[in-house]
Computed example of a mutant assay.
Amino acid sequence: MPRSLSQLIALRQELHRFPELSGEESATAQRISAFFAQMSYTKLIPKLGGTGLAFVWEGEKEGPTTLFRCELDGLPILEKGEVPYRSEMVGKSHVCGHDGHMAILSGLGLYLDQSPPMRGKVVLLFQPAEETGDGARAVLADPRFAEIRPDYAFALHNLPGFPLHQIVAKPGSFAASSVGMSIFLHGRNAHSAHPEAGNSPAQAMAEIIKMLEKLPKDFEDFTLVTVIHAELGQIAFGTTPGEAVVRATMRAFDNAVKARLVAVAEMKSSEIAGKYGLGIEFRYQEDFAASHNHPEGFEILRQVAEDLNLDLKEVAVPFRWSEDFGLFSDYAKSMLFGLGSGLEQPQLHEPNFDFPDQLIPTGISIFFKIIQKLNH
């Protein structure tokens, strides 16, 4: 490697100390830019989709554009691990491993600096706001994305619960589509001594929660509804509540199935609100498309695993979590895969999760071997 692994580990641990939330990753982007400052890439597209960065290497011959993506953002979770480089940003942490993913792509940049592509383009994309589902959409909507529109797009995510260095993949649907749904109920306040004078949404709220939790039984395809928050009125013992909200995450392995799930939830919630004479409105956030892997991308990854003598586990069922990389499948032959981060590793988003630095050279080797197959 042209620069020692210790320097990539130092970068990863520095990123770990200073996490930033989705859409706020300016300092993180600056740290990445500083690391790439001495590299001889062809082009840099800054502030892509907000705080994103795209480093481009161009070959001398015609060929495909191959994009590799990692994530810039951390999470609003207080870190409870005891590592010496624990987060210095109170209430923020890299307990999903995006710091490690950035280190892998930074190491890939070092490889490209020594062995640039002969054909086409290679793009290293540091994407903002993956955790909220907004980042990929913002990058794709940026007019400058046309300059790097890829033929192939690859991304990895470390996966606790799988053996260290094991590749976890499947063609077709790989990670679920999901969306956060908020259901607002509008009634009428009254004095709690005279509740009959108002119109409390309490009963409707309870019925909607029960309905949502049972809703997946109406679908043959996989769906999941998780009620994550509910609030009724205010803490005011002299007042009958007039407002309520129920929030739930809706999931499916297929975008169309998720759309039907949401439509049915809206219809049944509206029926319940109508029964009680309540107003109702719906709001949505953190909307993720399903991640769908192209068969050619999967075959390339299979060959790479064989070349590098890495174990590839082809899973039969998609993962229930979501990743906004799924949007890239509308533009390119995309491939999202997992890289095992250890059987005893805390799960993603747990407050004591820490990315294992042993994965950095493995991730770099996988990505660089893909470049050798497509752009050399």
Rank of each mutant, 00 (worst) to 15 (best):
Q166V: 04
P116E: 03
C70M: 00
V168G: 00
Q114P: 03
I148G: 02
Y276F: 15
A197R: 15
P201A: 13
Q166G: 04
Q127L: 08
K217R: 02
D287V: 04
P216S: 07
G91E: 09
G326L: 06
P318F: 11
L156R: 09
A236S: 14
L53E: 04
L48E: 04
L327I: 02
A197M: 14
D357M: 03
K170D: 02
A273R: 12
A193W: 05
Y111V: 01
W57F: 02
D287L: 07
V245T: 12
A129F: 01
F367T: 06
S182D: 13
Y111I: 08
F184W: 14
S192P: 06
G52M: 12
D324L: 02
L112R: 05
A263I: 10
D330A: 14
G279S: 08
G81F: 01
N352F: 12
T240E: 12
R188F: 11
A197I: 12
I235R: 11
L48N: 02
M335A: 11
D73R: 01
E82P: 05
F355R: 05
A29I: 05
L374R: 07
L78F: 01
P318L: 11
M118H: 14
E82K: 14
I45L: 15
Q38G: 04
A34H: 00
A305S: 11
G59P: 09
T42I: 10
A10Y: 04
Q38W: 01
D151G: 07
G198V: 02
R31F: 02
S6A: 10
G91Y: 02
G180V: 09
G91K: 04
S291F: 05
F367W: 05
L164T: 15
G63Y: 11
E71L: 10
L112K: 07
P64R: 07
V246E: 10
K170R: 15
L224I: 01
F353G: 09
P128R: 00
A103V: 06
T42D: 03
A29D: 01
S341D: 10
G187N: 00
A316R: 13
P318K: 08
H157V: 07
E79P: 03
Q203R: 14
L374G: 09
P160A: 11
M181L: 15
G198C: 06
I208D: 06
F253H: 12
S329H: 13
D221K: 11
R260D: 15
F353M: 04
G340Q: 00
E344S: 13
G107N: 06
H349Y: 07
K268R: 15
P356C: 09
P46T: 13
P356W: 11
V304C: 00
A197W: 15
K313V: 13
E350L: 14
Q303C: 15
A37M: 08
G59F: 02
D324Q: 05
Q303N: 15
A176Q: 08
R69I: 09
S322E: 01
P351V: 07
D354F: 14
V225Q: 10
P19D: 09
D357L: 03
F368L: 08
